[in-house]
Design a protein around this nucleic acid. Structure first.
Ligand code: ZN
Ligand code: ZN
Ligand code: ZN
Ligand code: ZN
Lengths: 156, 156
DNA sequence: TGACCAGAGGATAAGTTATAACATATCACG
DNA sequence: CGTGATATGTTATAACTTATCCTCTGGTCA
């Protein structure tokens, strides 16, 4: 992710989410919008409690966990956010318009997360399930390693 | 998994673990053995606290969470047990002799879990990571759906 | 207009999962 | 034995998630 203008990422995510909610006639309330914006504060996963703190810092009076979890439920339901199971954390989806399962690359050093978009891989996964008699309704893939950047600059 | 003699599964898992620990010169203590046996009580995932209850029921005086978590750490480290991230639960590995990452099929109805052993799939995953500049040190794939049996007998 | 209803979100509490920190027991080995 | 390393016990608490109840608001439709 290096040094890009991240404001653009945030803005684009918010605009796309807004459009999708209009199209679906779902309610993109100020709270939900704010939480999505906070999720997009970086290309790193954030936990529910980090969001809680961020939201509380942002002028509002201290909010309680259910507030965050409800907003996240909505955002996940709409496909704006994915949950990273191995981290108990959340990350914005760069392509919420197309329904898909979450496949992620996670850098163990800098914690940058990149979403994998690979149709061949998804087909391969579905086939593997079918081969063993299972249907594939949902699947998650989380790959832990070092990102390009951290590989270069590090010896571990 | 249907109706097999599950005692054989348990016995085989314990024997193999014993052999591996002898070969590696690691300590397969009574506690660790007991926990592995409990993990293998079925082909379904068990949570740490379920293990805690089982262990406590099994005559011993009530044990505390760290006891279970430490035993699980060991069993996972040795490859006898995998952790299912999406369920916060644990399951025995049918092939601990060969190092591999955990790829699972999980039936959302009966909770049976089947481990996928598919080298082509693993290669595909590693390639997908490399394509995006990441190394793949570790990865987990969890596929949720219906097993063969539940597909037949159900309408949902 | 005003009764009604559904959904969002605030407040409180509790349930579930996991670890920190420290004490003690057991084992391997000289 | 004595010593260090590893394993287990004990207590407390952190971290994550959900249930429940209640109020408010905005829309629907006699
Ligand atoms: Zn996505
Ligand atoms: Zn990195
Ligand atoms: Zn395995
Ligand atoms: Zn099933």
């Amino acid at each position: 992710m290096s040094n890009h203008n991240h404001d653009k990422c945030i803005e684009a995510a918010l605009i796309e989410a807004t459009n999708i909610c209009v199209a679906r006639n779902t309610r993109f309330t100020p709270l939900r919008k704010k939480v999505l914006e906070l999720v997009w504060s970086g290309h790193n996963p954030v936990t529910a409690y980090e969001l809680l703190d961020m939201l509380s810092d942002a002028g509002r009076k201290r909010v309680a966990p259910p507030t965050i979890y409800r907003a996240l439920d909505f955002l996940i339901e709409e496909g704006f956010v994915h949950r990273l199971e191995s981290l108990n954390a959340f990350i914005g989806c760069p392509d919420p318009a197309h329904k898909h399962h979450g496949h992620f690359l996670i850098c163990r050093k800098c914690r940058t997360v990149t979403e994998v978009k690979d149709d061949a891989l998804q087909k391969n996964i579905t086939r593997a399930a079918n081969d063993l008699g299972y249907s594939c309704e949902n699947n998650m893939l989380e790959i832990m390693g070092l990102c390009h950047n951290c590989k270069k600059h590090s010896n571990s």
